[in-house]
Amino acid sequence: MFAVYAAEPNADAPLDSLTVGERPDPEVPEGWVKVKVTAASLNMHDLWTLRGVGIKPEQFPMILGCDGAGTLEDGTEVVLHSIIGDPTWSGDETLDPKRTLLTEKHQGAMADFIVVPARNAVPKPEGITPSQAAVMGTAWLTAYRMLFTKSGLQPGQTMLVQGASGGVSTALVQLGRAAGMTVWVTGRTEEKRNLAEKLGAHAVFESGARLPGKVDAVFESVGEATWKHSMRALRPGGVIVCCGSTSGPNPGADLQRLFFLQLSVIGSTMGTRQELADLLSFVANAGISPEIGLELPLEQATEGFRAMLDGDTAGKIVFTH
């Protein structure tokens, strides 16, 4: 079958190990299902896989793509839930110590077919296209959990999204606006800030700018470059929800502000199958159109990977069949 895969780890030149070509058709273990992929989206995780981060050398070659949408053999349209957990685990699968993501141990979605446990094929609601569904499983699911499960925000409260154009950030803007939050966003460039406004932000600011007031929650995926600003932006008793640290993992903690103003810092990673199902229903019912910055046929995947590596896109990158 046709696939886009990492031939081997390459820490210094990840695109050198990106391969577009043929791979064997997958076998279907008991309790798993075969999905004919119609669309798959690109995540930073795929670049980390190409670099050999979070994956053992013996796992290569590895088909890329955490996220995707497709059809079962009976024609049912489904969205992939990318967390593969221990079958004996009960409860929140994001806390399962044996959990793994697609492309870490199991082959990914950038191929004609993928096999996943039956529970990881979540029915796609009407009103969402395959390309839109393909962006839901990582960035949008992460944003949904941050906002609705972790933050404690109520409609009408004010949220600040640090960084305007990434997949999680654009999802937070669109979800927050649809849920009735007042959405503020920071961005490094005018182009990125304009995108946030187009997606529904009520106000946009340059990175690190003094804000007109304090916010109830800050959504962080940047880390060191924005952390001090995030701490200063919060009202007493406010919360930072953090899902990543793209600019560095060692921010100045500002502990005096943390305890004196009784701030909360909450970590958040991915989401559960139920949260994905709820996200899909919310997006369909609210008529949200996820921001897709670049859509290409799978055969042109190298162009999409290069755009992500160079930071040339706003919104998600999707490959279609």
Rank of each mutant, 00 (worst) to 15 (best):
M231P: 01
G252N: 12
P251T: 11
E220C: 06
S247W: 00
W227E: 01
G244H: 09
V204K: 08
P251N: 07
E224C: 14
A201L: 07
E197S: 06
P236Q: 08
V204E: 00
D254A: 15
Q256V: 11
L199K: 04
R235C: 13
A233F: 00
S245H: 13
A233T: 00
D254S: 11
S247E: 02
I240F: 02
R210M: 14
G237W: 08
A217P: 07
G238N: 00
A201T: 03
A225Y: 01
P212K: 06
E206W: 11
G252D: 12
P212D: 02
L258Y: 15
L199E: 03
I240V: 06
Q256S: 15
E220I: 03
V215P: 02
V218F: 00
E206I: 01
G244I: 09
Q256M: 13
L211K: 05
S245D: 14
L199A: 02
C243M: 13
R257L: 12
K198L: 14
V241E: 09
P251R: 01
L234C: 06
G252T: 13
G200F: 14
F219G: 01
S221P: 13
G213S: 08
S247V: 12
V222I: 12
S230E: 06
G200E: 08
D216P: 01
N250F: 12
L255C: 05
D254N: 14
C243G: 02
G252C: 11
A201K: 08
T226M: 00
G237Y: 05
G213E: 10
G200W: 15
K214I: 05
L255Y: 12
